[in-house]
Write a protein that binds this DNA or RNA. Structure first.
Lengths: 229, 229
DNA sequence: TAGATTGTTAATCGATTAACAATC
DNA sequence: TAGATTGTTAATCGATTAACAATC
């Protein structure tokens, strides 16, 4: 199950998509699939699916393909979602709030234990069963429940200081929703960035690139309207 | 400014980070930088920075480096953020709500024009100056303000149908926050996925990988606590 | 001028794809 | 059995890095 060599980030980023697709199949009651089918659904090549999986082991059978439930189980193990994880939310603004309310976290063995903020009006409240504490109390609060992952959603200016504080309190991983490049690589803390603006900018590039290669936006939109009606 | 050949997604995904870094420099009043400095801040090689930029043009001077303001301007143009964009939010749940409230959208020429939902209790309300309409009214509402980008944050089950509706109404780009692989490639609509779960899973992989390669989590955490105190 | 740093070409490295023997 | 599909090796393709002449 554990790979012998280092796996490229590309592969790691594709694994969750495989898992999501398999779960969809499983919910539909589909019992078997193949690299070709997975690839088709996810817009990639069958070869790549097999190559990716083979980095971790052999989960299929020649002539048959993959058993959906088994492969789900294997990929879950590879990713590590079979292990329960404790999450704390740092910064209960819009996004922190959204993540607390929404999210099928629990479904995947993630448990949101506590939330932290600096604003007095929100400290002491309870959102969706999660208590909000003062950030000052962090070490005290997490004393008995070691946190695996901190979701960081604080204003950019304070991100770095808080990240350092988390590191000093033994937090091994930060899920970083701020615009700050944390640059904590010297420290052995794992950082995963989620940057809305970067994503929106990339989308904008493709949008404008597409528009400039056609004659103009209006024309294109009108053409589409006509085509579909 | 417009590239002659197709640019790899890797490059496109790095451009916003360059821009963000330059803005930070600019805010500090720094006037000049170099590929080496950019690379240092962003954990990559100077060679890569120069290679990336050279796909679009020559923005630096030998022996000097880059003028911060100029390069900012150039990259903004490449990405296309100099053009104003109209955004509509589809699905005003936690994330939709968060994006409406938060976000320095306006700072980057994005204008959130309208929001849409199906729940009667939210239709007709006004969030942060943005009116919430029934999704039924979509074509009518956007009649006079063509939408460039729809932020899609609806339940997974209905994502595909709504995406198709958007396409049929001439929306050229979807910023997809749902768990659904839209698979609309046949249609010429641009889709950019933002998937929290995928991101959390990737983080989890690195976390568990790190833990399994050390002896155990507790030991590692304790070691860190001791080290920093 | 001397030092610094670009833009670009060539070399290296890594990731994706193709192909196919093994076998269910 | 015949058809299907795996896991893996080799071939291709692309992306990153190194090197350096040009020059500010």
């Amino acid at each position: 199950m554990k790979p012998t060599r280092v796996i490229s980030p590309n592969v790691i980023n594709r694994l969750p998509r495989y898992l999501r697709y398999l779960q969809k199949l499983d919910e539909k009651g589909v019992e078997r699939t193949s690299s070709a089918k997975i690839a088709e659904a996810l817009n990639q090549t069958a070869s790549q699916v097999r190559q990716d999986l083979s980095a971790f082991g052999s989960y299929g059978s020649t002539g048959y393909g993959y058993h959906v439930k088994d492969l789900m189980e294997e990929i879950s193990q590879i990713i590590g979602v079979h292990v329960p994880h404790n999450i704390a939310v740092i910064g209960v603004g819009g996004i922190g709030h959204a993540l607390l309310e929404h999210m099928e976290f629990e479904k995947y063995n993630y448990h949101v234990c506590a939330a932290f903020d600096v604003r007095p009006e929100i400290i002491g409240t309870n959102i969706n069963g999660v208590q909000v504490y003062s950030i000052e109390e962090f070490s005290k609060v997490i004393m008995d429940t070691p946190i695996d992952i901190c979701m960081l959603a604080v204003p950019t200016g304070v991100a770095k200081d808080i990240a350092l504080m988390l590191y000093q309190n033994g937090v091994p991983a930060i899920w970083n929703f701020t615009n700050e490049e944390l640059k904590l690589d010297a420290c052995d803390i794992i950082v995963q960035n989620v940057n809305f603006l970067d994503s929106l900018f990339a989308l904008t590039y493709y949008l404008e690139e597409g528009i400039s290669s056609s004659r103009n936006r209006r024309e294109k939109e009108n053409a589409r309207r006509l085509y579909v009606s």
